[in-house]
Simulated scan of single mutants.
Amino acid sequence: MKNISVMTDNGTLFKYMYGETSSYETAKENLAEAKAKGYDSAYLVAFRDGKKITIQEATKK
């Protein structure tokens, strides 16, 4: 898989992220692809202005 980025949480926990898009539909497709490749615990994460937000906040119109 390409477009992998790494984020640390408290300097000890590493979180690997796949893909970056402003499209919710594309994000869901990326999630399905990751799960199909065996990453069963994959989930969507949303950011706004560099801060983590909920998916509900991200999908509000």
Rank of each mutant, 00 (worst) to 15 (best):
M1L: 08
M1P: 00
K2N: 11
K2P: 02
K2T: 03
N3Q: 08
I4T: 06
I4A: 03
S5H: 03
S5I: 01
V6H: 05
V6F: 06
M7G: 04
M7C: 05
T8G: 02
T8P: 00
T8R: 06
D9M: 03
D9H: 08
N10I: 03
G11R: 02
G11H: 04
G11C: 00
T12R: 08
L13P: 01
L13H: 10
K15C: 10
M17T: 10
M17R: 13
Y18P: 01
Y18W: 11
Y18G: 00
G19F: 00
E20S: 11
E20M: 04
E20Q: 13
E20I: 01
T21K: 09
T21Y: 05
T21M: 09
T21V: 05
T21Q: 03
S22N: 10
S22I: 10
E25T: 12
E25A: 14
A27N: 05
K28Q: 10
K28E: 04
E29I: 13
N30H: 13
N30E: 12
L31Y: 12
A32K: 13
A32E: 14
A32R: 10
A32F: 06
E33W: 07
A34E: 05
A34T: 07
A34M: 14
A34F: 06
K35S: 02
K37I: 08
K37V: 09
K37L: 15
K37R: 15
G38Q: 13
S41L: 15
S41T: 15
A42R: 01
A42G: 02
Y43K: 07
Y43D: 04
L44F: 15
V45H: 02
V45R: 11
A46H: 14
A46S: 13
A46I: 13
A46W: 14
A46R: 14
F47E: 04
F47I: 00
F47A: 00
R48P: 00
R48E: 14
D49F: 06
D49L: 04
G50V: 01
G50Y: 05
G50I: 05
K51C: 11
K51A: 12
K51W: 11
K52D: 11
I53C: 06
T54K: 06
Q56P: 03
Q56L: 11
E57L: 07
A58I: 09
A58S: 09
T59W: 06
T59I: 15
K60V: 03
K60E: 10
K60I: 03
K60G: 02
K61F: 07
